[in-house]
Design a protein around this nucleic acid. Structure first.
Lengths: 198, 198
DNA sequence: GCGATATCTAGTCACTGTCAAGATACCGTT
DNA sequence: AACGGTATCTTGACAGTGACTAGATATCGC
């Protein structure tokens, strides 16, 4: 129950996270400060300390939420796509990019290692669950390409991830035209199905 | 002439850049502050202002230097490789990754758009020269793959870049095992020459 | 109902980037 | 050769930051 009476907020932790997400969206990663978060939650500058002892702790909690949304974005895109290896690869890539495009500040926060506390169990779990999406779609893709050895399958795994991750980064850094689409790996790797010969 | 006499430094601008690069290497991007740079150059905290009116200006100058080294890293790797499309693609990717691995803080600085002044001509030129390396190697690669349309060639271009960029980012963020190698695009896209069938 | 504890406020500290004012050395003109 | 203008550097200040301490207030267990 959010109480207006005073002093005790009711659910300050949630309110701080909400305020932080709003600031992140409006001002970007550089604009995120503990004091602004506190002010936006109508609370003194030292109030967050009890819920998030340090800025890094707040950012870690934010990243955990972000990884959950990130996973959902990929899962939603996959669910809307056909259930074959190529379509799933493309869909997951789309989900990856969509999340980055709609939440550039969050995306950056998630992937600047030194800024987060990776000893936090919740963060590790959320991140692992996200990346698991990529593992799931790569296996049938590798089968279809006839990759047998673990080394080859691992390399394909890295390729799938690097492609999605790299394009997302380049896109939010303004290095790609606004209407550029993510490279479709399936299209290049499975020429038998849809050869890029235009 | 670096003069020790006092007051006038001699070549403070260069000394500041040198100090900044050292701090970047030792303490990472978050540890880079104007005051630390000034202190390391044995100069008062406001001395940098005349050479770099703002922190962003210093970072822009650093990024310009970084892009030049970045281009050199790729050029060196390419020069040491065979002169065929596949080898050049792999070599450029190696150079890309090597630079990121050896200069993670610089690499991050180069690719956080909001932190740099992209209206700066020198920065834009250095960055363009770097990316030109990728354009050069992609053309013969596209020829060899039989890609004719501009759309297909552009998509291959994005794929080459995204793969290198994404792997580099994931690597310096600790998302890849220390001994992981960058995915070899040529190996996957030209199965006739070296099929990944292990 | 009452005390222990969780939660929040107020004040402070060192550090940051930036600005203003003044001191010092250099450089071109005469 | 001297002198004035200018570029360079120092000192001092200000607001904003994360983090810490001490104290005020509300909630919860008993």
């Amino acid at each position: 129950m959010a109480r207006k009476t005073s002093y005790h907020h009711g659910n300050l932790r949630a309110a701080l996270l909400k305020a932080a997400l709003e600031i992140l969206e409006r001002e970007g990663l550089a604009g995120l400060t503990l004091r602004k978060v506190a002010a936006r939650a109508r609370v003194s500058h030292a109030a967050p300390a009890h819920h998030f002892p340090t800025l890094k702790a707040l950012e870690t909690a934010l990243a955990t939420i972000a990884f959950e949304r990130f996973r959902d974005a990929m899962a939603t895109a996959r669910a809307a796509a056909a259930n074959d290896a190529a379509a799933q690869i493309s869909a997951a890539g789309e989900g990856y990019l969509t999340f980055a495009r709609e939440n550039p500040a969050l995306f950056r926060l998630m992937f600047v290692e030194s800024q987060l506390d990776w000893s936090d169990a919740a963060l590790k779990e959320a991140a692992t669950a996200s990346f698991q999406q990529l593992v799931e779609i790569t296996a049938p893709f590798a089968d279809q390409l006839g990759l047998a050895s673990e080394a080859d399958r691992a390399e394909l795994q890295r390729l799938v991830w690097a492609n999605a991750h790299g394009f997302a980064h380049l896109y939010i850094d303004g290095k790609m035209p606004a209407d550029a689409k993510a490279p479709d790996l399936a299209r290049f790797l499975m020429p038998a199905k849809s050869p890029p010969r235009s």
